[in-house]
Design a protein around this nucleic acid. Structure first.
Lengths: 200, 200, 200, 200
DNA sequence: CATGAATGAGGATTCATTCAT
DNA sequence: GATGAATGAATCCTCATTCAT
C-alpha cells in the first residue's frame, strides 16, 4: 500500500506486471490477468497496490531506475578501463556506453524500461513529478555526453535535437528489433552511434 | 458498412476519429466519445463502420495513404526542379524530401499517420494484410533512397539499420515535438538528415 | 400497413418471413435479415407492415389459414370418394385425412404452420383474438373427428385428452422429422393414427 | 466460472433461471431480469457463469439430469414392489412409470426439464456434446421400454416412431396443461399410455 | 495476507423503428 | 414505394474496486 515499499514480493509482482504491460499494453491488461500471472486472486492484488495505476507507476519507476543504474554502471566501467584518451575519443566512448546501456535495458532486460517509455502518458497527478525527476536525471546523462560530442567535433548540429534523434532511434528499436535476428543490441548501439559521429 | 466505401461522410468521420485516437489512444477512446465528437449518437456509428476496429483500420489506411501520397508529391517536385545534379546530391535531396514529407504528415497534417504508426498492433486478421502492403510500399521508397545514399557515399553503414534509425528518430518526434516551439517540421527534417549524412 | 391487405407482394414477403422464423426463431430473426432476404432495405419493410409483430401475425394467420384450407380439402376428397361405409371406418378415414393434412402443412409446405404453432406466445393484444378464432375453428375439426372416433369405439378414453395427445405428437414431429429420412409425412400420419385406433 | 462447479449458490441461480426461461423464453429473458430475480446486479451474474449461454447450459443439464434421476427412481420403485408378473404387464408398468416420471419433471418440478426440451437449439459448440449424451441416455430408457412393449404385443407398430409419438405427446402437454385444471399429471400419463396400449 | 462474491459504472454492439429525401 | 442515415433504448458483457469472511 505504501508507494515506497519495496518488499521482495512486490518486486516480483512488478516484474510480472512489466511483462504483461509490454505484451498487451497497459489498457488491455486487466487486473485479473495480472493476478492470475502472479498466482493470486484479483482481490489480493489490492493488498500490494492501491490501484492499477500504482502498479504502472511502480513499473515505470523500476524501468527508469534500472535504466539509470545500468547507464551509470556502463559509464563507471569506462572510467576505470580507459581514462587516458583524447576528449573526442572519450566522448565517443561515452556515447557508445550510453547507447549500449539504453538498448541493454530496452531489449535485453526488457519490459520495465519499455513500459517507462511507452506508457508514460497514462500517469497523472503527483506520481508524475517523481518520474519526471528520474527522467530528467537520465536525460542529463545523455545531454552532457552529446554536448561533449558536439564540443569535440564528434557530432555536428544542434545538441538538443541530436539527443532527441538518437534517443528516438533507440526507443523505436523496440518496435522492430527481434531478439532472434542476426544483430545483437550492442551491434545496434554501435551502428547508430557510428552513423551520427563524424570520423577524425 | 463496406470497408471500401469512401463516402464523404465517412471521410469526415475518419478524420475526427484520427484526432481522438491520437489524443486519447485507441483503447481509451470510447465509441461514445467518437459519436459525440461526430455529432451523432453512438448507435449511428455502426451505420458507417462494422465495429470499432474498422474505424481504426480506416484511420490507419488513411494515414498510410496520405503518407504515401505526400511522399510521392515531394519526390515529384524534386524530379521536376533539379534533375541535373551529381548522384550524391540527388540522393541527399531525396532523403530530405522524404524526411520532410514524413514529418509533414506526422506533425502538420497530424493524426491519421500518427495512428498508423502507434496503433498498428491493435489490427488483427485479414485487415492487416492490406495495411502491411501499404507500409511495405512506403518503406520501399525509403529503402531505395537510403541505398542510393550508401552507394554514393553520402551515408555510411548498413542500409537496413540506417533506415530503421532514421524512421525511428522521425517517428519518435511525435512524442516531444511541440508545434508552438521554435523549430518547424522542415527544420527538424533537415537537421536529422544532416546529422547522418557525411559531407563532401 | 393494413392488416387485411393481401397484395401478392405481401404474400411473397410473408412466405420468406415464415422461412426465416422457422430457421432462426422469431426473436433471433432481425428486421434486417428479413429485408435482406426480401431484396429490400430494412426501412422499406415498414411500408408493408406496421411493425415486426405484424409480420409474425401475418405469418401465423397464413399458417392457420392454410392448415384449415388443406384440412378441408383432404376432408372434401374423402366425402366424394368413399361416402358409403360404416361410421367407424368413416371416423378412421377422417382422422387419417386430418393427420395427413396436418403433417402436410407442417412438414411439406412447412414454415407458416410451424410458426403458427411455435411462436404463438409472442402475439399479444387484439391481434390474438382473430388468431384464437381460427385456431378454434381448426381444432373443432379435430374435436368432431375424435369424438366420432370415441363414439364408434374406434378410440378409447377422454376425447379432449386424445385430441391433445394426437396433436401434440404431430406437432412435435417438426423437431425430429427429417425430410431426407426413410418415411414420408403420410406414413407418419398413418402410423400415428394406427397406434391410437383400436382394430375391429 | 467453472462449468462443473455446483456450488449451492449456483444451484439456486439455476433454479431461478429455469423459471424465467420457461416464463419468457431464453431470448427474451435478459441478463438484468435474471440478476434482479436473483437479488444481485447484472454484472455479478458473470461471477457464476461465463456468459448467458452457460446459464442455459446449466439449466438444461439440470433438467436432463433430474429427468433421468426421477425416471430411474420411478423404475426402481417398480422393481421392488411388483417383480412377479407377466412380461406384458411389466412392460405396461414400465411405460406408465416412465410417463409419470416424465410429466412429473415436466409439469410438477417444472422449468428445468421444460427448458431442456424447448431451448435445445440455442446450444452450440462443445457444450452440446455432453447434453446429447445425457439425452441419449434418457431416450435409451424409453427405447427399451417401448421395444419391450412391442415385443410383448402391448404396443403395435414401429418402435422408433412410437417413441417419438409418445414423447411428443408428453412434451407438448406443457403447452396446454394447466395445473389448476381437473386432471393431475399422473392421470395424463395413464390416459396417454392407455390410449396407445392394446388390451389383453 | 488471501479470497470469493458483489458492485456499478461503463464498454461495444444490436436492433426495431422513424423520416427526410 | 424505396432508401440511407439516424435514433435511443436495450443488449450482453467487462473490469477496477470493495469488503466481509
Amino acid at each position: 500500500m505504501n508507494v515506497a515499499t519495496t518488499s521482495p514480493r512486490r518486486k516480483e509482482l512488478v516484474r510480472i506486471a512489466a511483462r504483461l504491460f509490454v505484451e498487451e499494453g497497459y489498457d488491455r491488461t486487466t487486473v485479473r490477468m495480472l493476478a492470475q500471472e502472479m498466482g493470486i486472486k484479483s482481490g489480493s492484488l489490492f493488498h500490494h497496490f492501491a490501484d492499477k495505476q500504482e502498479i504502472l507507476c511502480a513499473v515505470i519507476e523500476e524501468g527508469m531506475f534500472s535504466a539509470l543504474a545500468i547507464a551509470h554502471e556502463h559509464l563507471a566501467n569506462l572510467d576505470n578501463s580507459l581514462a587516458a584518451d583524447t576528449p573526442r575519443a572519450q566522448a565517443h566512448l561515452r556515447l557508445l556506453a550510453l547507447a549500449r546501456a539504453h538498448l541493454d535495458t530496452l531489449l535485453t532486460d526488457r519490459n520495465a524500461h519499455v513500459v517507462a517509455l511507452y506508457e508514460w502518458r497514462r500517469i497523472e497527478g503527483p506520481a508524475r513529478e517523481h518520474l519526471v525527476q528520474q527522467r530528467d536525471e537520465y536525460e542529463a546523462l545523455w545531454r552532457s555526453a552529446i554536448e561533449d560530442g558536439v564540443a569535440t567535433g564528434l557530432l555536428r548540429g544542434d545538441a538538443s535535437l541530436l539527443r532527441q534523434f538518437v534517443l528516438g532511434a533507440l526507443n523505436w528499436s523496440v518496435r522492430w528489433y527481434r531478439a532472434d535476428g542476426e544483430r545483437s543490441p550492442d551491434e545496434l548501439a554501435e551502428a547508430l552511434i557510428d552513423s551520427v559521429c563524424h570520423p577524425q
